[in-house]
Amino acid sequence: MSEFKIGQREVENVSILELKGYLDAHTAPKLEEAFQSLLRSQRYRIVVNCRDLSYISSAGLGVFMAFIEDARNGKGDIKLTNMSPKVYNVFDLLGFPLLYEIFKEEQEAVTRFFDRTK
């Protein structure tokens, strides 16, 4: 099944995960593996680009919660970008903007990692 795909690339030493499709209880383990693999390689600066993410349920949201602490302990972060209003609404409903930095564009999130005033 190709209902959910993850692309990965590096920009200025920040890891970008591009999510595509439907993130639910069935596909959430794929995202979990992607985070685990990055954190194992001590890549703690992560931007998740949600441009092509069509759907997210609480199983997907739970994955973000599972790894944010590890990323921050490694002096990095998980930042989210390019969400459709539909996907943003689900994050917003659960108060995620309190805990996660969410940007309109990927480059803003990448730049934020190098913002010394933060």
Partner: peptide, 20 residues
């Protein structure tokens, strides 16, 4: 939710979502 997210707990969000 603030307390919940601060402590990075997983699961249990589904029922809250359904009600919302």
């Amino acid at each position: 939710m603030k307390e919940y997210l601060t402590h990075y707990r997983r699961g249990g969000l589904g029922v809250y979502l359904m009600k919302s």
